[in-house]
Design a protein around this nucleic acid. Structure first.
Lengths: 343, 343
DNA sequence: CATGCTTCTGTGAGCGTTCACAGTAGAGAA
DNA sequence: TTCTCTACTGTGAACGCTCACAGAAGCATG
């Protein structure tokens, strides 16, 4: 009787058990497990049957010990935690990466490096080779983690173009500048001429690019870029509110606001409502991200969709390619204007 | 020549290198690494110095191969994804668990089992012993994952009391019933007598318990439990809105609503505003969770704080104890009434 | 002096896998 | 026939670690 008493599972079958069961050697089983090259059809079938019968699952520790690879990938978040909680994009990205990796049967290790202490611990953990690569999310410029990992030769893919690192680092990003231009173009097409902007943090590539797109499109349309129409935010809802109040105070004739994130845009909507401005009649508001909350904002938010599903799958693809020995690569993905009620 | 070519980091030091460097044997180094029992102070010091000099980090794969433990823990989410994105509590919990585990130098593997397919894959992965234990989040009754893992003997700690499983499963939960009673007591103390409730999903323990607390407290105060005052929701914002509309239609004399989650409470606030009811003047609203959004709701939400930091740390503590061979345990933690503007 | 106990140390074995290598069998070419 | 080439298979030897064991040294007890 193979009673499984509490906690003590019966010893799982090894490659040896499978080999005996199939009447072949360990080597042949191993070859079947790793692609089935140089294996006769008969042996192939016998091994597969034996695997099914025994319920064999490869022991990843043993495999990793000899291959030197861990068959797992880290998802490293170097943001302060509040941002993670507030911003729905992280969740979307996280889910997308988990799914893309699941297709390769690779588990994702979530790593939160909020404090310097955690950062050090994780850097040590990663450079010790316990993950094959790292998906790096939202590193501000000056973030030392990326630099350290890069120097240690750890395959790395950033989400968004990292500032201040050489061109040797892979990244996947939406075309922020182009998206910003599309939104401003849309606002212009509605007849708006006093278009303000609440920017993202300007030490992030997204923040910089979206601002640049806004400025380019205005200039291209022959309109001046008025500093009083630009307020800087940090992607938080609160900073959107503050930004809108600042803009209203400095430029009461404001007739549109391009906000660098949907979350901030919700703050902008609240501030405009408080100030008695109707959206979209008095002021058009355009967001960025097409976050899940965008359609249910009031009014429903016109925004720029970032292709998060593709961003995450591309990040995983590039990372795995790099783990496999390929060179770093940069991928830029197009965005899409989503017109709803707010503009 | 041991050139380190691109991507091929120089071979990391092994326990053997440390032993040679310290002038002791592998065994002694290993003993130092595992608690330092039966090691002379001199050897202890020599080994520590050698570890520092060589930059040695233990190879977890090799260790796991022999100990049979993986020194990692799974954080398993069996919710449909929308819930994960919407509910800030998951984020708080996730962060808390990550930090609590980090103190033990144990990485957390995030596992999302949204579809049946993913569920199967992950169950296989987990039962194959690739994590030492599982932190299970928000399993509805009838969730097969918990049952399967339990049968496989995988150490398991649920967040919230699982319905329909025996008492052999560990869980950590806030005292939902007591919290609900505290909120209703507060509403009664404000002079409210027609107190409605929007419940959580009644196939979850939290949903059931909060409803029970509401009913108990009303009964205890000598008030009737009126079915027209009870609407059922699913923790989503939209269901809060729908619930409030239903209550207003069925019981226009409503003077307070106890809502089983902050997110639903935001929907309730929106519905009340649309219906022209002022909060808290006409209707008092009490939430549950003390989510990050609660203070910034308008009006700021009176709610019940769940001790998420303690919940996560207790979950980790109980899980690790169980991995270490202890018996399952249930932990109930007290909640706290947070009075803001809405009631 | 032998015996036991405690503290400390080194050694060999083995965890389950992959990898390099040697070897076998069969087909085709000389 | 004999050689060579290809497709396939089995066999040690690692990978880096922990564990069990044996043994040494020190000290107290019989």
């Amino acid at each position: 009787m193979t009673m499984s008493k509490a906690g003590g599972r019966p010893r799982p079958p090894t490659i040896h058990d499978v080999a005996r069961e199939a009447g072949v050697s360990r080597g042949t089983v191993s070859r079947v497990l790793n692609g089935g090259h140089y294996v006769s059809p008969a042996a192939q079938e016998a091994v597969n049957a034996a695997i099914r019968r025994t319920g064999y699952v490869v022991n990843r520790h043993a495999r990793s010990l000899i291959t030197g690879r861990s068959d797992s990938v880290g998802f490293l978040l170097t943001e302060p935690q509040e941002r993670f909680f507030e911003d729905p994009n992280f969740n979307v990205l996280l889910r997308g990466c988990t799914q893309a990796l699941a297709a390769h049967d690779i588990p994702l290790l979530l790593m939160l490096a909020g404090t310097d202490d955690e950062r050090r611990r994780l850097t040590r953990y990663i450079t010790a080779g316990h993950v094959d690569g790292v998906l790096l999310v939202s590193s501000h410029s000056g973030d030392p983690v990326a630099q350290e990992l890069l120097e240690a030769g750890v395959p790395l893919v950033a989400c968004g173009k990292p500032i201040g690192l050489g061109s040797k680092v892979s990244y996947v990003a939406a075309d922020d500048r182009d998206g910003a231009r599309a939104m401003v173009r849309h606002l212009l097409s509605l007849g708006r001429r006093r278009i303000g902007m609440v920017t993202g943090p300007l030490d992030t590539p997204g923040g910089v690019e979206r601002l640049a797109g806004y400025q380019e499109e205005l200039t291209g349309a022959g309109l001046p870029v008025d500093d009083r129409l630009i307020a800087s935010g940090d992607y938080s809802r609160a900073s959107g509110e503050a930004g809108a109040e600042l803009l209203l105070a400095r430029a009461p004739d404001l007739d549109a606001v391009f906000v660098a994130s949907d979350l901030m845009a919700q703050g902008v909507l609240a501030a405009l409502r408080r100030a008695g401005r109707r959206v979209p009649q008095d002021v058009s508001v355009g967001g960025f991200d097409d976050s899940p909350a965008a359609p249910s904002a009031s009014p429903a938010l016109t925004t720029i969709r970032q292709p998060w599903d593709r961003i995450s799958s591309e990040m995983v693809r590039v990372l795995l390619a790099q783990v496999g020995g390929e060179d770093p690569a940069a991928v830029i993905l197009p965005t899409e204007l989503v017109v709803r009620d707010s503009a």
